[in-house]
Nucleic acid binder design. Structure first.
Lengths: 337, 337
DNA sequence: TCTAGCACTCTCGGGTGGCGAGTGCTAACC
DNA sequence: GGTTAGCACTCGCCACCCGAGAGTGCTAGA
């Protein structure tokens, strides 16, 4: 059974360790926080916490270090969140309102701001293979023999692709074709585009195919934004070349993408913390993730996460991830409206 | 005076050092390359090369390491280039032809391919503040009260921006406005766009302003593509945490941008090698750069560079940088045609 | 139940010595 | 004069040892 005192003590150990990155001794705890008991008492309590699997000592004559289980309890029951202050909120929101109203720009900006704010790695992803539907197609004459296909997707992205033609087309024919494409393809996906292309021929077919490819691309793209590598690497956990190289090796967009939880399972507004071994990948054994999802009222469309050593300022990071996710969601809704 | 034999010896020292990353001893030289002389002779020649400032020894009982001056001579007179094989050319060119015909995509791809090929950092930049002119404007109706402004630039980029309107516009009015914008703005820049906006009012003004902003953006963007950090960091020069952190700290896009030479001064088809202290920045003292420029027949529009430790495979890197730059130039020309 | 005291364990940093790699120098040789 | 063999010398690297310090667990007593 975990007494109240031991839980509080665990909280102090985690706080202290997050702060100093060195094993926490009974003396340090007694000195920094005026607990009414002696170091000997603290030691016996620490021993109990160790028995229960919350903390451990790296070697006999060292202080205590939190284990994943300790962090888990800390995150769920003990820690105090440090809410995002009004000023901070304003500073962040301001930057978004100054940026281009484009999802891609927003996500890049969000990654940068978030990484800077929590001095860890921020990962933002639109998941792959998601069902993205077409909201709008337009054809723009570029040169005599090429046409720009512009597709607006339901999630607000605008994609474009150049289709080169066999022969010149006139503006009117394009307008007709655009209407036809819209009529058939709005609300559907690449497969429908390819079916339609089959029915057409010549340049019309090319354009329809380009549209289908555009929709394909929207699937696969799943652009991932990763920022904050530098800040993360400055932390003491990477003070050896091997650890550092290993981190740099694994922190590739495509690898991260597969380790992020599915945004659908998290739900908008919620945050989830994944600690150490709870991550599937072996290389993430001593990393933690704070994950949230963003999207418009139709559901979650992407994941926003902060990645860092398990020794992470959870109480500080979690509200900030949540805030940025909520901000993007609200921007998305405003854009769609 | 540098005799022929000493020059050849310098070449061997550099080759060997590039290969092994450890100071080169007289014995190693005698063993690997069947020079017809003994190690004692080699030693005395090495001593002369040291007097002349081409090489140095890190400490008394160590072999020789090339100095910047040694690399310089090596690059200019001694080294043998390793040309890009036909197969390699085909593999690379193939990937470009498969990619979207979009400058941004090409540059990203080029950075990735180049970095992989030379296992160092590839930096590709379109320089900022360059005079980009408009080739084409089109307006696309998105929703009742928003219009997508699509601008095609002379360098082949397609930019877009959403302008929201005060009241619904009909397709015909848009077409008229698009023609007017084109008539006035093709071949000119953001300033002209703003002048035109002054003459208009209401939604027309908004759209003209959006167009001007688009042209502004094209100036500032100066997108920089940096790839290959991981591969570079695996090299032995970064075997200490400080060196590694320093590298990661400085390798930020905006910082690199300012250290790249002006593409105009290099000229298309040419390559320039900047070795160690020849770089302005103090942190680049033991880095080298192989730089080339790309562009269409109207001139150079961007820089393509490989960045790595001074101990770099120059003979291998230079032809590859040149090849990729030429490839992009030819793709650009084909696109503009 | 808490505390003071104490023996014990383990890391970390500094100092030492031997080893090996390479060099420069010198004297002899072609 | 250029080349070579031999040798003394220098210096970095590494393994090893040792002492100091930090921190613990245990025990006996309040």
């Amino acid at each position: 059974m975990l007494t109240k005192r031991r839980a509080a003590l665990l909280g102090l150990v985690v706080d202290e360790y997050i702060d100093t990155a060195t094993p926490v001794s009974s003396r340090a705890l007694a000195a920094r926080h005026g607990l009414g008991v002696s170091t000997a008492t603290i030691r016996s309590e620490l021993a109990r916490l160790e028995d229960e699997g919350y903390i451990a000592q790296p070697h006999t004559s060292a202080g205590r270090v939190p284990l994943d289980r300790g962090y888990r309890l800390y995150v769920e029951e003990i820690m105090a969140e440090e809410p995002v202050g009004l000023n901070e909120q304003r500073t962040i929101a301001h930057q978004f309102h100054q940026a281009e109203p484009r999802l891609d720009d927003w996500l890049g900006l969000a990654a940068t701001l978030l990484a800077g704010s929590v001095t860890n790695i921020a990962v933002i992803a639109r998941p792959q293979g998601q069902d993205v539907r077409l909201r709008h197609v337009q054809l723009v004459e570029l040169t005599a023999d090429s046409v720009l296909v512009v597709a607006v997707l339901e999630d607000g992205r605008v994609l474009q692709r150049i289709a080169s033609l066999g022969q010149p087309v006139d503006q009117d024919a394009l307008a007709v074709l655009a209407r036809r494409l819209s009529a058939r393809l709005v609300g559907s996906d690449a497969a429908a585009g390819r079916v339609l292309a089959e029915e057409l021929a010549g340049d019309e077919q090319r354009i329809a195919l380009a549209t289908a490819e555009l929709l394909d691309e929207s699937h696969q793209a799943g652009e991932t934004y990763v920022e904050g590598l530098r800040a993360a690497l400055e932390q003491p956990e990477f003070s050896s070349v091997q650890r550092m190289l290993e981190a740099v090796r694994h922190l590739q967009a495509y690898e991260l993408l597969h380790t992020l939880p599915d945004p659908q399972q998290i739900g908008r507004g919620a945050t989830r913390v994944v600690i150490g071994h709870e991550n599937g990948s072996p290389w993430l054994q001593d990393w933690s993730m704070v994950v949230s999802a963003f999207g418009d009222r139709d559901g979650a469309v992407g994941t926003i996460a902060v990645l860092g050593p398990t020794r992470m300022r959870y109480g500080y990071t979690i509200p900030r991830v949540r805030y940025v996710a909520a901000l993007i969601s609200s921007l998305l809704e405003r854009m769609h409206r």
